[in-house]
Computed example of a mutant assay.
Amino acid sequence: MRPPTLGVDVFRKAYGFDDTFAFLDSDIDSGVTDKLNYLSDFMLENGYISKAIDVDSFVDKSYYEKLKTSEQ
């Protein structure tokens, strides 16, 4: 399994100078959960944890969803 990559555009957005904090993205999308699943698999395979983490039950998007609907 290949580790997920950020890509050049995301790297520039995250590490470029921006004093408005526009680079902060609070969206929890499939890219975020894919990275967390990859991290869980990596830690399990290397003996850092004894069982896989259920990312879907670990990540709580309810606050974000409420915030998103209140902005509309």
Rank of each mutant, 00 (worst) to 15 (best):
I53V: 15
I28W: 15
V59M: 07
S62D: 14
N46G: 12
D27T: 13
T33M: 06
K51T: 10
F21K: 15
V55T: 01
T20W: 01
S62N: 13
N37W: 00
G47Y: 11
G7D: 08
F23L: 01
V10G: 00
N46E: 05
N46M: 02
A14V: 09
K61S: 02
F11C: 12
T33S: 03
D27N: 13
T20R: 15
L44E: 11
D34T: 11
F23W: 11
T5V: 06
T20Y: 02
D34R: 12
D18Q: 11
F11R: 08
K66Q: 07
K35L: 09
V10P: 01
R2Y: 11
D18K: 06
V59H: 12
E65T: 06
E65M: 08
Y38M: 02
N37T: 09
L67I: 09
T33L: 07
L36Y: 03
F21V: 05
F23S: 13
D19N: 13
V8A: 04
R12G: 02
E65P: 01
D54R: 14
M43K: 13
G47P: 04
S50M: 07
D29W: 02
P4R: 12
D9Y: 03
F21R: 08
I49W: 11
T33W: 01
D29G: 01
A22H: 04
N46S: 11
L6M: 10
R2S: 14
L44M: 08
D18H: 07
D18E: 04
E71M: 13
S40H: 07
D27M: 07
K13N: 13
F42A: 14
Y38L: 05
F21I: 04
D9V: 03
L36T: 00
D18I: 07
R12N: 05
N46F: 06
M1T: 13
I53G: 04
V59R: 05
Q72C: 07
T20V: 10
Y48F: 15
A14I: 08
G31K: 15
L44Y: 11
Y64K: 10
S50Q: 12
I49C: 05
T69H: 06
L67P: 00
Q72K: 15
Y64R: 15
A22R: 14
K51M: 10
V59T: 05
D27G: 04
D54T: 04
K35D: 04
I53L: 15
D34L: 10
F42E: 14
E71H: 10
Y15W: 06
D34P: 00
S40T: 08
S30Q: 10
Y38R: 09
Y64N: 06
P4K: 10
D25P: 02
D56N: 14
S70E: 12
K13P: 03
K61I: 10
M43D: 09
V32D: 01
K68N: 09
E65W: 02
K13F: 09
D60V: 03
D25I: 03
L39R: 08
S70F: 14
K35I: 02
L36C: 03
K68E: 09
A14N: 06
Y64F: 07
F21L: 13
D18C: 10
D29R: 04
A14M: 07
K68P: 00
Y38G: 08
G31N: 15
E71T: 07
S26P: 04
P4H: 14
L67H: 10
Y38T: 06
G31T: 13
L24A: 07
S40R: 02
A14D: 05
K66M: 06
